[in-house]
Design a protein around this nucleic acid. Structure first.
Length: 534
DNA sequence: ACAAGTGCCTC
DNA sequence: CTCGGAA
DNA sequence: TTCCGAGGAGGCACTTGT
């Protein structure tokens, strides 16, 4: 099939409002593909290339110079091949080689094809349809129930291969795609709740578990073979030897576990998220250190009689404590799939499988108990809790209401220093705010930006109001007289080298404007810094 | 040898 | 990761 | 209810430029 047909379909999808019509358009195209074209085409129409990292982003795309072709000649296979070549182009000189490859490719593309490629490779397809719509499209094209596609997608992890299976083999082929140890499934996600009482009232009897601020891990083990995947199903096995050591010791023959990995300090307190992230990457290629860092002590051993050898090696390494896994779900144990079993049964399997690495938590329907678990978690330096209905199955890939996360929210009164013009549906509105805390010595210290929490009506108001306060502007940004106070909610702050106050807001969103307040009433930089842990 | 720019990953 | 809009 | 897209913070790997 010509790539131009993909581009035309994407255009049609973008011009359509109804999701079902978008799916119809996509299904029409899927039916016309050759079998070998299904996987790349599903990727292109969900904004991805199946080769993954190809080392091409906006800067690279903007530097391409080429004359568009008049007639479409590129096929789906041509583009797929080009992506494979780009992915394989690494090492010294690869930048120029990729640029050359892209120039030649764009020279063979018509103008609409080139524009589509820029959006695809730039990660901004913006056609109002992604994997969610594509699932329905695949079902329509293959004449199978959407639920069958959805389930295969969740358990198999990749929609492109599910699409090919559905179209070439129908329901029977989809049913072959089950949970397989060594292949990641899409993790279940949690929706939010304002507090533990609300969560428990919605859920009834629930497992209330600590929520740790680290990296989501999905661990697979089959005999001696171990895999560690992230939330987005990336394989980080080689980068987390401390975890694989611990997993190797579990009393199981095969297992699939869901959990969180966090780095801890000497005192047994969790490190800041940024430190956990950097921990993840440091092990590989770090010859001596990786071998010396033996399995971390189990949580119960750390607080009282920690293993002396571990302590010594850690001190030598200048890298105290380390990365620890905390598991909160068990999806497969010794040959038995548990995804469809109720949480209570999965927790029983978890207890048998992970011993000391179990996420702390309590099954309860008592509001006071739930509140106490939250207090314990926060007291131990963690992020909050997740409450989970005890009867719920593991809804892979879904952000269902069976899991509710509860995190404390802080609010700050900050001053708008500048705003950036929005893009896409925010075009024409001043959207992204630069936020400053008050410096008691005079002036304001920028601590972050936010574009979240604004309704369309607020965007309109804010664009007009900030326009009145404009002092100077560059392309994309308007600096304003610092007098507008805005109440901002944050999950917390983190240390920053970018911002002059040494702190940056985490997940900042606008609550409301405070026109009743003056900049002199705004929170100080000291108040913001006080939110740093420790 | 070192710094800057870019891509891509986590949340 | 959060949020608001839309189907 | 579900999906999409608006865009935030930091940190490492890799490549290129000085």
């Amino acid at each position: 099939m010509l790539f131009a047909e993909i581009v035309a379909t994407s255009g049609g999808v973008a011009a359509t409002a109804a999701r079902s019509t978008k799916a119809d358009l996509l299904a029409d195209l899927l039916r016309r593909l050759d079998d070998d074209e299904v996987e790349p085409a599903v990727g292109f129409l969900t904004g991805e290339v199946r080769q993954g990292r190809i080392g091409v982003g906006w800067a690279t795309l903007m530097a391409i110079v080429s004359d568009p072709s008049a007639e479409p000649t590129l096929t789906v296979g041509d583009i797929d091949l080009a992506m494979s070549e780009l992915a394989a182009t690494i090492g010294s000189g690869s930048g120029a080689a990729r640029a050359s490859l892209l120039s030649r490719l764009f020279g063979r593309a018509t103008e609409p094809e080139a524009a589509f490629l820029v959006r695809l490779l730039g990660g901004e397809l913006r056609q109002g349809a992604n994997e969610g719509v594509m699932v329905d499209a695949v079902a329509k094209a293959a004449g199978v129930p959407a639920a069958a596609v959805r389930r295969a997608h969740m358990l198999g992890g990749r929609l492109d291969t599910c699409a090919r299976a559905a179209i070439t083999g129908g329901t029977a082929a989809l049913e072959q795609i089950g949970l397989q140890v060594g292949r990641p499934l899409r993790p279940m996600l949690a929706s939010t709740a304002p507090d533990t009482a609300t969560a428990l009232e919605d859920l009834g009897r629930a497992s209330v578990e600590w929520k740790l601020d680290g990296i989501r891990i999905q661990v697979h083990r089959q005999g001696d073979a171990i895999w560690v995947f992230t939330r987005n199903l990336n394989d980080i096995t080689a980068r987390v030897p401390e975890l694989t050591d611990a997993i190797a010791r579990l009393p199981v023959t095969s297992v699939v576990l869901d959990g969180e990995a966090v780095a801890f300090d000497d005192a047994g307190r969790p490190r800041m998220f940024q430190e956990t992230v950097s921990w993840r990457a440091r092990a590989e290629g770090d010859e001596g250190a990786a071998a010396a860092t033996s399995s971390p002590a189990a949580p119960d051993a750390v607080t009282d009689d920690a293993d002396a050898d571990v302590e010594v090696e850690i001190a030598l390494d200048q890298a105290p404590a380390g990365l620890r896994p905390y598991f909160f779900d068990c999806l497969h144990l010794d040959g038995r799939d548990l995804v469809d079993e109720p949480l209570a049964d999965r927790l029983a399997a978890l207890d048998a499988a992970v011993g000391p690495w179990r996420m702390p938590g309590t099954v309860t329907d008592d509001l006071a108990v739930a509140a106490a678990v939250l207090a314990e978690s926060l007291g131990a330096g963690h992020e909050g809790v997740v409450a989970k209905a005890v009867g719920s199955p593991y809804e892979a890939g879904r952000r269902g209401k069976a899991w509710r996360k509860v995190k404390p929210v802080h609010t700050l009164d900050l001053v708008v220093l500048a705003a950036e013009w929005g893009h896409g549906r925010r075009q024409g509105w001043l959207s992204n705010l630069h936020l400053g805390a008050r410096d008691p010595a005079g002036g304001f210290v920028m601590v972050g930006k936010t574009f979240k929490g604004m309704t369309d009506a607020l965007l309109t108001w804010q664009t007009e109001r900030l326009g009145q306060l404009e002092e100077r502007a560059t392309k994309g940004t308007v600096w304003v007289h610092p007098e507008l106070v805005v109440e901002v909610a944050v999950d917390g702050v983190q240390s920053s080298t970018r911002y002059p106050g040494g702190v940056a807001l985490r997940f900042a969103r606008v609550v409301r404007y405070r026109e009743d307040k003056d900049p002199a009433d705004a929170d100080t930089i000291g108040a913001v810094q006080a939110l740093l842990p420790g």
